[in-house]
Design a protein around this nucleic acid. Structure first.
Lengths: 202, 202
DNA sequence: GCGTTAACCTACTTTCGGTAAGTTACCGCG
DNA sequence: CGCGGTAACTTACCGAAAGTAGGTTAACGC
């Protein structure tokens, strides 16, 4: 047991950095941002605290970096899902389904991603905003392709409404896991949005 | 200037408590939860830190108490607005308008109100949940009166979508103050929701 | 083998939430 | 008026955790 993986071993910067991100992601998800101490993350990495600071600068920096991966993955997953669709309503449906599936399979980390950063100090709370901007651009683009004649401000507004609705519904599902399946959630969201958009569709 | 309000004066419990809540609300809104120290709030109250703990138990306790007033006001304002309406769509419109007007007139504290409570540590998170249930129940009730035949789970889902959509759109407006008036925001929200609900209306 | 460097550690400071134990002003009562 | 009780208030501290200065050791090229 003790020899299988030498408890402490020198690693290259890249290797150690990746390990730290893995550990940080898990611990933040488990305990939340505030309750997680840098000492614990360091311990679980089999390394001392100054190493974390060497690599990530601060607790916020580490959090930021660890969440960035989830953010990229979410973007990737939803984008790819929508790319496979044909008609507009199918785009919506696939995007929603991918989103709720992502949340379901990352449910621990997701709550962290969505709710914790809001209380992190201003500079790193922006990360979540960044994530939303990215998703926002994605969605606004999709909406524009549905309804090319709708005013931009309207599309922006609808984008925000959709993002907020998705997040809230997803958070609600984490608190009521048995109330609604992934497909039902995606279905409700799709239906609601589709109806909402209907006056602007060609 | 120095004699107008004696810098330090004994106050009754109720009076001091109210003053502490006023100060806390302002400071949290100004600096955010994490950057605010109990020492600073105590200073601005002209009182020492243990008094805060005597009255509110913890930093989280103080925060919750200070936010509770805003939430109560929000609830009150939206409920009263809707009570004056006649037909269903007017209920929606008035509720939305009241909501966005409230946000507009409390914009500095609003970001705090919306985003901070989500991050409190597990032990006291229930307080937030409680308040949210209240708003949720209000909306779900309204929806049920619109669409008595829709399944409860669907109404719950729509409630979450609506709350999330409102919050996001309101936050977006605080970052883009000139992009959209209160009436336009309320209008978009009303239209989107009304359309979304349409399949369930009698 | 041997020196350079990059990974790593020990031991410290500071900040801040929270607390124990004591002090002072007000208020009713004789 | 004085005096005692209580409720408002304070000083002075603790512990936990973020962040840092400076030294140590293992690996790798020569």
């Amino acid at each position: 047991m003790s020899t299988a993986t030498p408890r402490r071993r020198r690693m290259s910067r890249a290797e150690r950095e990746r390990q730290m991100l893995d550990v940080a992601e898990a611990v933040f998800a488990e305990q939340g941002y505030r309750s997680t101490s840098m000492d614990e993350i360091a311990d679980r990495c089999g390394v001392s605290k100054p190493m974390l600071y060497e690599y990530f600068g601060s607790k916020d920096g580490l959090f930021h970096a660890s969440m960035a991966r989830s953010k990229a993955e979410l973007y990737d997953v939803t984008q790819k899902a929508m790319a496979g669709a044909t008609d507009p309503r199918d785009i919506l449906w696939r995007g929603m389904l991918a989103y709720f599936e992502f949340v379901d399979s990352h449910s621990d980390g997701f709550v962290t991603l969505l709710s914790e950063p809001l209380n992190v100090p201003a500079d790193s709370g922006d990360l979540v905003e960044e994530t939303r901007q990215q998703q926002s651009a994605l969605i606004t683009g999709v909406l524009k392709s549905f309804a090319p004649d709708a005013p931009d401000a309207t599309l922006q507004a609808f984008t925000e409404i959709i993002i907020g609705g998705c997040e809230r519904l997803a958070l609600w599902r984490t608190r009521h896991p048995d109330a609604m399946s992934v497909e039902e959630a995606a279905g409700h969201m799709t239906e609601f949005c589709w109806q909402g958009l209907s006056p602007y569709l060609p």
